[in-house]
Design a protein around this nucleic acid. Structure first.
Lengths: 346, 346
DNA sequence: CAGTTTAGCTTAATCGTTTTAGCTATTTAT
DNA sequence: ATAAATAGCTAAAACGATTAAGCTAAACTG
């Protein structure tokens, strides 16, 4: 880090009066293999410390044809959910001697295509991607092109690709069961218009649990158009309240926060007037008079597994389609208390 | 992006029947300078597109010391404040054809040193750093070593280095003036133990404004030890309330959120029992019964200017110590209403 | 028409490593 | 004593780009 240029392997070799090859062998632990004398090896190691040598990564990578770079494409790294994941990815990648390049697609298909190309052109050895709506073909193509790839948060079950995601079905199963056990029955879901599998799974988990409990008649899934979430959320909630909905489950964090804001504006009290369940931790959940019950994702495991799987793929190409499915945790707070009145009789 | 390995400049040269030098000249915009015929230049460019050529960053870096890489070291990229800045830095850098490497120091001096070394080792041409407490020497050394450097969010006024920061003095001046105008006088500040200049400036802005208003007797700055913020915050707030404090100003976002949580636990109402001002936008500020008045930083400008200054420095080494100081904006909400009772008479 | 310019290229060194192939002197085997 | 084996090292190419220096043929000069 000082002003003179860094010690190179050449400097070391010169000052020891040996070849660069010898130095390289020793410092890479291949001394035995190349029959370098024990005494020589010690001298090299000592000198390397003396001269504060550290290998030039760039040269190393050039020679090895390895960039030790991985690309991460999330929808928006300024979103706390993704920035948390990104942070963990960066930490884990760093442990494994990889450097991470980040990009944000803003949920846009064209950006996704472009940014993936940019990352690949920058020489990344693999990609971790949060695929946006409609990106299935792009992802499929990418797999074909033999770029090691791991999807995070969302994935396409019929595409042979690595993934690390939540068990989304189980998440809403947990939520719905909890609500039913606490006496709710007219449970409605607020979702958004999408073809993405993770949302479908969340809907399915809710629907199946409701059916099993014999509440088929109360099944109620509302899909909001994200171009105007606030006003659509308002209308939806109004409608649900009129229809005597017991409890509302929002399927994403953004929907949850929006829902809470709307309910506040509408002077609807949680849980007195309506029980409420959110998705993914958020400061706002805990600051309300009655903190919100929500699904917590094990972000750390999801992110670490994503990196592990990716690096595995980079090293052995035989591991197509490996995946990790994380267990959701239901954090029960006071937005979903036991109902006073029996729900079947109201 | 296809299965075969990437096109190199050699492949291009071979398929055109020319030397690699020619190709390099053309693709680096030095065709004129090296008297390459216009026709030849066009053929090279066309072929490069056809073969989807993109330069190998690693090789470029090794040869020229030009990596088009910049390093960004924030304290924690999963913190929304820094992830927002990071996102904008990434976008702006990308426009200028730079790739960004991110790291998080966790406010730790040793990590700061290590990560800066790692980034420099990875070949970054410049650094954008949020310096942690006690990092002044590290930063000074870095300037000496001729690594282009821009500090963000916090800086050291007596170190000749680029910076892009808020006008912190003005921020608390705005807050304090607003509070005084609304009839508050026993205004207390909650800060934390640090030598960092930005915090000192915030304190100074408060103190000077209070003095000018003749409220020297009410000056009250409380410094919390961050090793145990929650309980210290509790104690501090209790003490302040006993001392009939009118209004509390928290000097960072983390302190603000903590403060709000504590007040909620203590059943202290904002603003009925205590007026409250926070720092940096946060969802929690807007979800309270009475949304919080806070200082908003123009993050976009701060981040963009940081990149601009850095790239400037990378290109002309004569611009040591350039800086940008951003205007704070006071977002006035209902946590600081006009006081009913005259404060001088209570 | 001989000498000088100039246009338009190429050659080859270089960055800091890794690694294959091979060299030399000594030891061992026969 | 001589061939074969081995120990201990080195030479040099390679990774993919950049760039200083030089080369050749055509164009210009007087």
């Amino acid at each position: 880090m000082s002003n003179e240029k860094r010690t190179s392997i050449k400097d070391l070799a010169a000052s020891l009066g040996v070849s660069t090859a010898l130095v390289s062998f020793v410092l890479n632990g291949k001394a035995k293999q190349h029959r370098i004398s024990e005494e020589m090896a010690q001298r090299v190691i000592k000198k390397a410390k003396e001269m504060n040598y550290s290998p030039n990564l760039v040269a190393k990578n050039l020679r090895g044809g390895k960039s030790q770079l991985i690309g991460v494409l999330v929808t928006d790294i300024s979103n706390p959910f993704y920035s948390t994941i990104s942070r963990i990815i960066e930490d884990r990648a760093s442990e494994l001697d990889y450097t991470v390049l980040f990009s944000s697609s803003d949920e846009d298909l064209e950006s996704t295509k472009r940014l993936i190309r940019v990352l690949v052109n920058k020489g990344v050895e693999g990609l971790i991607v949060v695929p946006c709506d409609g990106s299935k073909e792009v992802i499929e193509e990418l797999c074909h092109d033999e770029v090691p790839l791991v999807l995070v948060d969302r994935h396409f079950p019929d595409v042979k690709v690595g993934y690390s995601v939540l068990d989304n079905f189980k998440a809403t199963e947990l939520i719905t069961r909890h609500l039913i056990e606490n006496g709710y029955s007219r449970i409605s879901v607020i979702s958004y218009e999408t073809e993405m599998n993770h949302i479908k799974e969340r809907v399915a988990g809710y629907e199946e649990t409701m059916r099993k409990a014999g509440f088929t008649e109360y099944l109620n899934v509302n899909r909001i158009n994200l171009s105007n979430p606030r006003s659509e959320m308002h209308d939806t909630l109004k409608r649900l309240l009129k229809a005597k909905t017991d409890a509302v489950v929002c399927l994403t964090n953004m929907l949850s926060v929006n829902g809470i804001y709307c309910l506040k504006e509408m002077k609807v009290r949680i849980p007195e007037d309506l029980a409420f369940v959110g998705f993914n931790r958020s400061d706002v959940f805990n600051l309300l008079e009655n903190p919100i019950t929500y699904i917590k994702q094990p972000l750390e495991r999801i992110a670490i597994e994503a990196v592990n799987i990716l690096v595995d793929k980079i090293n052995n190409d035989n591991t197509r389609g490996k995946g990790f499915i994380a267990e959701p945790e239901l954090v029960i707070q006071s937005s979903t208390p036991k109902k006073k009145v029996l729900s079947r009789l109201d």
